[in-house]
């Protein structure tokens, strides 16, 4: 092997740069989290100190829990994200299977049609989407958000899943057909379990943008009962902007669920990105 690649100075420099950037990446999150547990005085006097016995306070969290319906917001975000992901995966996998498995007239055209949405952001159509939701009475329902996110997620899901489904062995499917399985059974029983890793990739790719979206909740479902966590914390912070304890606590409460999800799914997410799912 080569000397240059084992050079310890290079390795130390590499660690130095990475540690420096990691600090930059984590510093704001860290500052918000530690200060959310401090008294107002301590927040201003020593913003970088950890909370100790003197400066510890939960007053911000008390205000947040009293004034804002954060559990309701959380529940809304959860419903929207989970249902949208389920629909994206189910509908996306079905369409991907049809495109990957069968030869029929217009197959390529249909694939291109569905792929259009990968590059064109759905937000461009917001004016007409709102009009559509108003005329169907879906404004201020979670269902409106679910529909929009499903439509937004489908193009990439179909694209990624059909790439993977082309790789499933034909022998297996034909064996199933000889055994008399219907096409539906072949899809649900034979193919779906084999593309589970790709499904997980699609799920984590879609999860974060749906959970974090501010635009569509703001426009389609701004009512108190349908606020998502992102919109809810935005509105809450806007109202309590001078109450630093409450703002910092609200921010921390918004960070926490995403951070937990990330810890659970980060390996999947990173493997998904690095396995070249996006080409």
């Amino acid at each position: 092997m080569n000397k240059a690649r084992r050079n310890p100075v290079n390795l130390i420099a590499a660690h130095g740069i990475l540690i420096a950037y990691t600090l930059i990446a984590l510093f704001p999150v860290f500052v918000i989290l530690i200060n959310s547990f401090k008294t107002r005085k301590a927040i201003f006097r020593e913003p970088l100190a950890l909370p100790d016995a003197d400066s510890f306070s939960m007053i911000g969290y008390q205000t947040v829990l009293k004034q804002g319906d954060f559990f309701g917001y959380f529940q809304n975000s959860m419903i929207v994200t989970v249902v949208s992901l389920t629909l994206i995966l189910l509908f996306g996998a079905m369409a991907a299977f049809a495109l990957a498995e069968y030869r029929f007239k217009g197959n390529t055209l249909m694939g291109l049609y569905l792929a259009l949405g990968i590059m064109i952001p759905i937000r461009i159509g917001t004016v007409a989407i709102l009009e559509l939701m108003v005329s169907t009475g879906l404004v201020n329902t979670l269902f409106a958000l679910i529909l929009v996110y499903t439509a937004q997620g489908l193009p990439l899901a179909v694209f990624i899943l059909s790439e993977f489904m082309r790789g499933v062995s034909d022998d297996l499917k034909n064996a199933g057909r000889i055994d008399g399985l219907s096409e539906y059974k072949i899809f649900f029983v034979l193919v779906l379990p084999l593309v589970r890793p790709a499904m997980a990739t699609v799920a984590v790719f879609n999860m974060i943008p749906i959970w974090n979206d501010l635009w569509f909740p703001l426009i389609l479902a701004p009512a108190e009962a349908t606020k998502t966590l992102t919109l809810g914390s935005q509105v809450f912070i806007g109202q309590f902007v001078t109450d630093w304890n409450a703002v910092l606590s609200a921010l921390s409460m918004a960070i926490l669920p995403v951070l937990i999800l990330y810890v659970i799914f980060s390996r999947q997410l990173i493997r998904g990105i690095t396995s070249g799912a996006v080409k």
Binding site: A128, L147, V148, A151
Partner: peptide
């Protein structure tokens, strides 16, 4: 299902 949702919520409004 995919074509319907995609067409109705994305392409048509666009």
């Amino acid at each position: 299902p995919a074509v319907l949702v995609y067409t109705a919520i994305m392409i048509f409004p666009l």
